[in-house]
């Protein structure tokens, strides 16, 4: 249970093509993350899968059955919204029980399930409170509880962590990952945060302007980006792009180097530059280096970095860590 297939799905609002013809296969039990800049259509795609938006053309099938025109309640999917969308006038208990009551389960079974879920999610003490009396993280848990309790064939998450503060976000990220390991249910997760995508996903779908740029495992996308967009989007801090031509391959228009792949020296190197801002994070340091004629490069180095504002440094890079891009953005494999 929980495989979803999209065939040539499109979505347009009048002349605005939000989703261009798109094929996607989501296997049972996978944790799939849709990632992309805002407005790339990732939330729309999720809502199409949920049934909250109609497709303009194309087909959706869930577990092999055609679900293109199936109403949302019949698809067996559960969704966690960005705003949590808890029912404000119902207690936590009733919020979690709501989908079960709609499914017309017996009272004692409902109670048993609600208790079980609230145990798992540490909500037992809050069952009789209203959502308005809970903190952001607790609300998030209730929303997840309401989704889990139905035992859906797949979970849909629409940027569920973006309303939480940084430390809570890391915790909830772990909890959701743990949940996936425990439940082994298909999860589809939408985010614009590539860190969330990298840390949680089995499979990342990078979207841009309504079409899929690349699908792959996190490390696959990190190591072998198919084009400049994916290379720039995956990895933090962002990959540095340097415009240059090569004599050996006339197609090459620019090269890309990840911040962690630079070798720093104070005597010799390929590029000579001046250190601008140095951000010391303790475990690592980000140097923003100004190179004449090229611009600013971001360098990531270890915590006890001796360089500071205004120092002159030399940078070089090992050839296996360089990505080459053609004029149209595609990545050119050299070797």
């Amino acid at each position: 249970m929980g495989s979803i297939t999209l065939k040539q799905v499109t979505k347009s609002f009048d002349d605005n093509h939000v989703i261009r013809p798109l094929d996607l296969e989501i296997e049972e039990g996978e944790f799939v993350v849709f990632v992309g800049p805002s407005g790339c259509g990732k939330s729309t795609l999720l809502r199409i899968i949920a049934g909250l938006e109609d497709v303009t053309s194309g087909e959706i099938s869930i577990d092999g059955a055609d679900a293109t025109h199936m109403p949302p309640g019949k698809r067996g999917l559960a969704m966690v919204f960005q705003s949590y969308a808890l029912y404000p006038h119902m207690t936590v208990r009733n919020n979690i029980a709501f989908p079960l009551k709609r499914a017309k389960l017996e009272k004692n079974i409902i109670e048993q399930k609600v208790n079980q879920i609230s145990n798992v999610l540490n909500l037992t003490d809050y069952l009789d409170r209203l959502p308005g009396q809970l903190s952001g993280g607790q609300r998030q848990r209730v929303a997840i509880g309401r989704a889990i309790v139905r035992e859906p064939s797949a979970f849909l998450f629409d940027e569920p962590l973006s309303n939480l503060d940084a430390s809570l976000r890391v915790n909830m990220r772990l909890e959701i990952s743990q949940l996936h390991k425990d439940l082994k249910t298909t999860m589809i997760y939408v985010t614009h945060d590539q860190v969330e995508a990298m840390t949680m996903a089995d499979k990342i779908v990078v979207l841009n302007a309504g079409k899929i740029e690349q699908i792959g495992s996190p490390l696959d996308l990190y190591d072998n980006p198919i084009n400049k967009f994916v290379a720039g989007f995956i990895g933090s801090p962002k990959m540095n792009f340097i415009t240059m031509t090569m004599d050996t391959n006339p197609e090459v228009d620019s090269i890309g180097v990840r911040p962690e792949h630079f070798n720093i020296s104070d005597t010799e190197g390929t590029w000579k530059g001046t250190v601008g801002v140095a951000e010391c994070l303790g475990s690592e340091t980000y140097l923003y280096v100004q190179i004449p004629d090229i611009g600013q490069l971001t360098i990531r180095t270890d915590g006890n970095c001796p360089f500071k504002y205004g120092d002159t440094i030399f940078l070089s890079v090992d050839s296996e860590n360089v990505y080459y891009f053609a004029k149209n953005g595609t990545c050119i494999p050299l070797d």
């Binding site: 949920a50 909250l52 309640g73 709501f98 989908p99 709609r102 499914a103 309401r146």
Partner: peptide
Amino acid sequence: EAAELDGA
């Protein structure tokens, strides 16, 4: 929408 997904 959440209620719709919950089968209401």
